[in-house]
């Protein structure tokens, strides 16, 4: 067991857990926030697998902009009486 394996196992478990949370959560906003967290976990996976370019891109696009456009799309729905 070296550091790589330990980190790898940790990242893997977190990836699956966060993905499950994103898919299973009942509220849309929670789901989106878990998606953002999943993207962050993906960034660590990319960094771990020696892919700094992809990590930077995923950090800016995946967890930044994608989260924003999701939130911007549902932001006004609270008034319409829907569950966020």
């Amino acid at each position: 067991m070296n550091w790589f394996n330990i980190l790898e196992a940790g990242v893997s478990v977190l990836l699956v857990a966060v993905a499950l949370a994103a898919v299973l959560s009942k509220k849309l906003l929670v789901s989106i926030i878990f998606l953002s967290a999943l993207s962050m976990m993906a960034v660590s996976a990319f960094a771990l697998l020696s892919a700094p370019d992809v990590a930077v891109t995923e950090a800016v696009i995946g967890s930044g902009l994608v989260t924003f456009i999701f939130v911007a799309s549902i932001r006004n729905l609270g008034k319409a009486g829907e569950k966020l």
Binding site: N5, E8, S12, L15, V16, A19, L38, L49
Partner: peptide, 9 residues
């Protein structure tokens, strides 16, 4: 391990 997790995703 990450390979397996990504397939699970």
């Amino acid at each position: 391990m990450i390979k397996f997790a990504s397939l699970l995703l």
